[in-house]
Amino acid sequence: MSNLGTLSYYLGIEVRQGKEEFTLGQSAYASKLLERSGMAKCKPCVTPMEEWLKLTKASTVAKVDATLYRSIVGGLRYRVHTRPNIAFAVGYVSCFMEDPSEDHCAAMKRLLRYVEGTVDPGIIFPKTGRSRLQLTMFSDADMAGDIDG
């Protein structure tokens, strides 16, 4: 085995190491995903999902290309590795991969607009000396609001 130097890129994840912290990000991957989806120069938005959004599998709106929808949602699922704040929205649009319609696609495009506005951030792990790493997470899941039950 040979020493290949400091880790800087692994499986599409950029690793930036500093004296006080190291950061995992996917800015290049996010840019490629936006280009592939035709949303590279879109207007960014500040939230990944509309508040109180209710979608259903039994939508009567026109259907969209399921293969393209699945491809983009799959790319967003990979993006969650370094952006856990979009996990809920990505999981929500993933529920409609079987038979997506235009309203499902609109929710996915909203999520892509959020990604456009937040391409660079990633996960920051501070180096805290001898103290142990403390990971704190919060979750807000509204399973009672699921109209497809």
Rank of each mutant, 00 (worst) to 15 (best):
A141N: 05
R110P: 00
N85R: 06
A62T: 02
L76K: 02
H104D: 09
G38T: 05
V90G: 00
E102V: 12
D120S: 10
S2G: 03
V46Y: 11
A87N: 14
G117S: 12
M39D: 06
R36N: 01
Q134D: 05
F22S: 01
T136V: 15
A87H: 14
E116D: 05
S94V: 08
V119M: 06
G38Q: 03
S139Q: 01
S8E: 15
D140Q: 05
F22Q: 04
I124D: 02
S59E: 10
V64G: 00
K54E: 04
A62W: 02
C42R: 07
G145N: 09
T6I: 10
P44K: 11
A141Y: 06
E98W: 06
I86Q: 00
R79Y: 13
R36P: 00
I72D: 07
T23R: 12
L11R: 13
T60S: 12
T136P: 00
K54N: 13
K127G: 06
D120T: 04
E35D: 07
P48H: 02
T6F: 04
K43Q: 11
R70Y: 01
S101N: 11
L33K: 00
R16T: 15
G18Y: 08
G122A: 04
Q17I: 11
Y9R: 12
H81G: 07
A28Q: 12
E20V: 06
D65M: 11
P84T: 12
K19T: 04
L111S: 08
S8T: 14
P126I: 01
L7Q: 15
H104T: 11
K63D: 03
C45R: 07
L7A: 14
T23C: 06
S2R: 08
L55K: 06
A89F: 04
K63A: 06
K127I: 15
S31F: 01
E102H: 11
N85D: 13
D148C: 08
G18D: 10
V64Y: 09
L111W: 01
S101W: 05
P100G: 12
Y92D: 12
C45N: 15
H104Y: 02
A87G: 12
D120K: 12
Y92M: 10
S59P: 07
L133E: 02
D65E: 08
K57T: 14
L112F: 03
Q17N: 09
E21G: 07
V15I: 10
P121E: 04
C42D: 12
V119H: 04
M1W: 10
E98I: 04
Y114L: 07
H104Q: 07
L11C: 07
C105E: 15
D142S: 11
V119N: 03
E116K: 13
L24P: 02
S8R: 14
G74M: 03
K43R: 15
V46T: 11
D99T: 13
C95S: 13
C105F: 15
Q26C: 00
C95F: 12
Y78E: 03
L34G: 09
R79T: 05
Y29W: 02
R83H: 10
